[in-house]
Design a protein around this nucleic acid. Structure first.
Lengths: 233, 233
DNA sequence: CGAGCCCTTGATGCATTTCAACGAATGTGG
DNA sequence: CCACATTCGTTGAAATGCATCAAGGGCTCG
């Protein structure tokens, strides 16, 4: 893990993370100023951990570039992936003093690191920040509930179709096709199914002409409508 | 749904919900005063809805007595239960203007209703409230992640064992046995398994002498140790 | 070229769902 | 007070979706 002090774009990333509307909010300017002074950047290689489960949490992070994942592992070696993160996503939100999940870089990534106490102390000065932070936590909760719903109600192939639609939206590239940064195993652990079932899912969607797959990770969604139908109960 | 104005115990419930440590926090007294003035109570019969999915959310609630559940249904009639709630649990936290789940009374229940805007506006006056509210949201997120982990990694019978241990702790009665307020179907939808599998799970745990079941809902955990072993991967 | 990694595909077994019947508890009206 | 309907839970048998085991293909890198 490399650390740096390059302040360039730190403020821009904070704005991007806290939302477009935020910069107009009362006190936002001062808040960003204060935060960016005390922020620094972190770089990670692929497969490197930003933090592990049970680590003490003293910072929160904003992902500037790359892709990361949040995961929890069992003693027996199985793993649940909670989320995949892309540019401008916030990570490190937790209610206890220790993380209940680990954060691992999928690709080479760079992040902005902010002292968590500094953020919380700003609640007093800038109530708008508290609201905004609440919104973000609430949004994460909402996404987690969606994930939970998927896991409880959809079949393996439906989960995969849903995942592809979801990830396309989040990566939001301008080209019609996109690249999956994570492995089949990562996807399997995210969806709570086996590696093989995931692979079969890709093959099935490919054979039915709903998606195109090039070189394992270049994906094109050919029939978005049908994928939607497919991923709904 | 019945509404009332009985202020008795409203403050006590607020304290219980916001935590023991809270009453010592700076500004807490004034905050509770202000909140309790604007709070009223709501009563629900069993199977009645406090609110449904997509309803506009203007309040949050504290469960005073009874039991409730949060759920999301599909067009095809299947359902995912997100949580069971008992006395002093908070509900209605959301990041958007509309609920993404419904809240249904399992048994006859009474709740305290507080205007959500009032709470958020108090962030400005009492930063400690903002922190505390954040803690609660974070705690809910943490519990949801646990649930997600269960759903992704454990087998049907393991999920049930885990559920029983979990619910016993939350009900926290002084007697060695406790009563499940929810039906087998509710449990099934919470665990993402079928009604029949749930029932078979109960039978299995009963036959192996890990639990005792009386009249469908009176449960005694006979072998807590073994249940723990059982519910871990 | 061979080693190693990731992905795919096939075959088999098992866990869980689904379909179906039955039993227990509760309530209703004759 | 007893047939009857209704709801809820249990249990069995059959079907199926998924995991697991196992083998092979394609890619990259030394």
């Amino acid at each position: 893990m490399t650390q740096g002090n390059c302040k360039t774009d730190i403020k821009a990333s904070l704005v991007a993370c806290f939302g477009n509307h935020f910069s107009g909010v009362k006190g936002a300017h001062h808040f960003l100023e204060e935060l960016s002074i005390n922020a620094d950047s972190v770089s990670l290689e692929a497969n490197e951990y930003l933090f592990k489960e049970h680590d003490t949490c003293q910072h929160f992070f904003i992902l500037e570039s790359g892709a990361m994942m949040l995961e929890r592992s069992t003693a027996s070696g199985s793993r649940q992936v909670f989320a995949f993160l892309v540019t401008n996503n916030l990570l490190g939100i937790t209610e206890s003093a220790h993380y209940s999940y680990g954060a691992k870089a999928i690709t080479c990534s760079s992040l902005i690191r902010v002292n968590a106490k500094l953020l919380r102390n700003n609640f007093k000065k800038f109530s708008a920040v508290a609201k905004r932070y609440n919104d973000i936590t609430g949004r994460i909760l909402s996404l987690t509930l969606d994930h939970l719903f998927i896991m409880g109600q959809l079949s393996a192939h439906q989960r995969l179709a849903h995942f592809l639609l979801d990830i396309e939206q989040r990566i939001n590239s301008d080209c019609p096709h996109f690249m999956l940064p994570m492995s089949r195993q990562d996807i399997a652990d995210y969806l709570g199914i086996s590696l093989e079932t995931t692979s079969r899912g890709f093959s099935k969607l490919k054979n039915e002409g709903l998606i195109k797959v090039q070189g394992n990770s270049q994906i094109t969604l050919l029939e978005r409508e049908k994928l939607c139908e497919y991923s709904v109960l």
